[in-house]
C-alpha cells in the first residue's frame, strides 16, 4: 500500500506570537519550527504502523519552500521512506490542497493522510479539499484506522458521538488524537533521514481563494481577582452578579 502523509510545519507550541510589517506578517524572529503535532503524532506514526503491519511505502508531502527542508528531515527521522516537497509558498488552504491533489493524482496513492488541523491556522480545511479535488471519500477526524485488503475501517468523531465506518480505498483521512502514540526519533533514524530522498517538484498554477490581510492580538486580560479560599459564597455571588455566567 502506498501512503502519502501531508506534513506542514508549525511554530513550536511555546512560541511567542507576534506580527510585523504593520501586523500583516507573522514575526518569525526567534521562532523554532516543528512538524505540526497532529501530522507527526497521529498521521505519520499511524502510516508507519500500517506499513510495518502490511508492507508498502510511506511518503511525506509538504507544500513549502526550501526553508521547510529542516522540518521535513525531522519527519523523515521518525521513519518515512522518502519525501516530496512541492516548491512554493502555501498561500491558503485551497492553494495547498490543489497542489497536493495534483501530485497525488499523478502518483497513485492508496491512502492520503492529513492531520486534524495546523496549529497555526487551525483551518481543518486541507484534507477535505484534497478529497473533493480527487473525488475520493474523506473521513474527517479519525481517531482509529485499520486497513484490510482494499477496505479501511475507521472510528471518527461526528455530531452526536463516534462513528465506526468503512470505506473502499483509495481515500483521504484526517487524523486526530487516539490514532497512534507519539514516537521519539532515535539516533539511527536521525542519521538515516539525512540521506533519504527529498524530491522537489514544481508547483502547479493555482489561484488562492483567500488571503490573510492582517492580524491582531487579543486584548490583555484585566488582572485576576483573588478570592479567599474559605469564602466560596463570594465566588458564587461574583459569578452571578458580576460575570453573569451562572
Amino acid at each position: 500500500m502506498k501512503i502519502l502523509v501531508c506534513i506542514s510545519k508549525s511554530p513550536d507550541t511555546t512560541s511567542k506570537i507576534a506580527f510585523t510589517d504593520g501586523n500583516s506578517k507573522f514575526d518569525e524572529n526567534g521562532v523554532q519550527y516543528i512538524v505540526n503535532p497532529y501530522d507527526e503524532w497521529y498521521a505519520l506514526v499511524r502510516a508507519l504502523e500500517l506499513k510495518e503491519a502490511g508492507g508498502g511505502s510511506v511518503t511525506i508531502c509538504t507544500v513549502g519552500s526550501a526553508t521547510d527542508d529542516a522540518v521535513i528531515r525531522k519527519a523523515l527521522a521518525i521513519g518515512a521512506d522518502d519525501a516530496v516537497r512541492i516548491d512554493c509558498e502555501p498561500t491558503d488552504a485551497f492553494y495547498t490542497a490543489m497542489q497536493i491533489a495534483e501530485y497525488a493524482k499523478a502518483n497513485d496513492y492508496t491512502l492520503v493522510l492529513t492531520g486534524k488541523e495546523t496549529i497555526n491556522y487551525n483551518g481543518s480545511q486541507v484534507g477535505g479539499m484534497i478529497a473533493e479535488a480527487m473525488d475520493l471519500p474523506f473521513i474527517s477526524l479519525a481517531t482509529k484506522l485499520d486497513v484490510a485488503g482494499s477496505t479501511a475501517t475507521a472510528e471518527a468523531e461526528v455530531a452526536g458521538g463516534i462513528q465506526i465506518c468503512e470505506v473502499e480505498l483509495p481515500a483521504v483521512i484526517s487524523c486526530a488524537k487516539g490514532m497512534a502514540e507519539q514516537r521519539i526519533p532515535n539516533m539511527r533514524g536521525i542519521m538515516a533521514a539525512r540521506t533519504k530522498p527529498l524530491n522537489v517538484v514544481a508547483a502547479a498554477d493555482i489561484q488562492a481563494l483567500t488571503t490573510f490581510e492582517s492580524y491582531e492580538l487579543p486584548d490583555a486580560k484585566s488582572a485576576c481577582k483573588m478570592i479567599d479560599p474559605e469564602n466560596m459564597d463570594e465566588l458564587v455571588s461574583l459569578l452571578h452578579t458580576e460575570a453573569k455566567v451562572i
Binding site: 485551497f94 461526528v158 455530531a159 481563494l209
Partner: peptide, 22 residues
C-alpha cells in the same frame, strides 16, 4: 462543528468558494 469540518472544505472546492473557517 464536526460536520462543517468534514463538509465545508469539500463544498469550497465544489463551489469554487473561498472558505473562512473559525
Amino acid at each position: 462543528d464536526l460536520t462543517a469540518k468534514a463538509v465545508a472544505p469539500r463544498l469550497s472546492v465544489r463551489m469554487k468558494a473561498g472558505l473562512v473557517s473559525g
